[in-house]
């Protein structure tokens, strides 16, 4: 079963905002309609990643340029959604991706506020949590994910993560040499707060401009400290109760 770690490199410098990735994802994964809303914020009509939006194209109109970026689940090395899932519905696949088993999920909703990127969400009419599977079924069939397949400009590149990282570093070097000094990689660093993301990006502005957190940390990194503080409070509670009864005759 030991496969290579697979992932996405999304190069936003060549994204043309066509939304073919959003459509391909919807079609292949049978993701339901999530409403037709004119948001009056540029050309974005899906708004954010969610239970029924697994690829989201962000549009940022700036003075003299137009940023476009196809966002997706980051498939973190240290995935908070997976850590906190109480049923084991979320699991790590042989491709090192993070997938929800919809036949197990009981819709507890814990993964939703645990994700530091705001990716996973619960579909309220269905009651379960949903997100990008990195087209687990296609990967098992030896195919690339639907979004990468449909991308007409190779903004979305799929492949073994170490190859993608190398390719991305070369791309940034070339852009810097061409004078695009604001080009930077986002998420690829294995030493970042989530241990590196399986889906990473080449951006032309600060992450928050695209709706991404600048430097997120997996919440479970602090879990041992949380249990220690809670243990202290539990002991204090026991001691407090004991004191309330001490010296009082029935």
């Amino acid at each position: 079963m030991a496969e290579q770690r697979m992932g996405f490199f999304t190069d936003t410098t060549v994204c043309i905002g066509c939304k073919a990735c959003e459509v391909a994802c919807k079609e292949w994964n049978d993701v339901p309609d999530d409403g037709f809303v004119f948001r009056a914020t540029s050309y974005d009509n899906t708004g954010a990643l969610g239970a029924s939006t697994w690829r989201h194209v962000a549009f940022v109109e700036q003075d003299g340029r137009w940023l476009m970026m196809s966002d997706v689940c980051k498939h973190c090395t240290h995935a908070a959604c997976l850590d906190v899932c109480p049923t084991g519905a979320l699991f790590r696949t042989e491709f090192d991706t993070v997938v929800v088993q919809s036949d197990v999920c009981n819709g507890c909703g814990y993964c939703v506020p645990a994700c530091p990127y705001g990716v996973i969400d619960r579909r309220e009419d269905d009651g379960r949590a949903w997100k990008c599977t990195l087209c687990y079924d296609r990967l098992r069939g030896g195919m690339e994910p639907a979004c990468a397949k449909a991308c007409p400009t190779k903004s979305i590149q799929f492949g073994p993560l170490d190859e993608l990282r190398e390719r991305a570093r070369d791309r940034v070097e070339r852009l810097h040499a061409e004078g695009v000094t604001e080009a930077r990689l986002y998420g690829e660093d294995p030493d970042n707060g989530v241990g590196g993301t399986g889906a990473f990006f080449l951006l032309l502005d600060e992450p928050e401009t695209y709706g991404l957190p600048p430097d997120p940390v997996v919440t479970t990194r602090d879990l041992p400290a949380m249990w220690r503080w809670a243990g202290g409070a539990a002991l204090a509670l026991a001691a407090g109760v004991a004191v309330c009864f001490a010296g009082r005759k029935p």
Binding site: G50, Q62, Y117, I120, R122, D205
Partner: peptide, 29 residues
């Protein structure tokens, strides 16, 4: 095409994607 537009924005300025949340708020009822 040298573009250094981001450097014109002061460091202290806080930017976002149309003011939208980055995180999903807890959905517990």
């Amino acid at each position: 095409m040298p573009r250094r537009r981001h450097e014109m924005v002061p460091d202290a300025e806080f930017r976002s994607y149309y003011g939208q949340p980055i995180l999903k708020p807890p959905i517990w009822h």
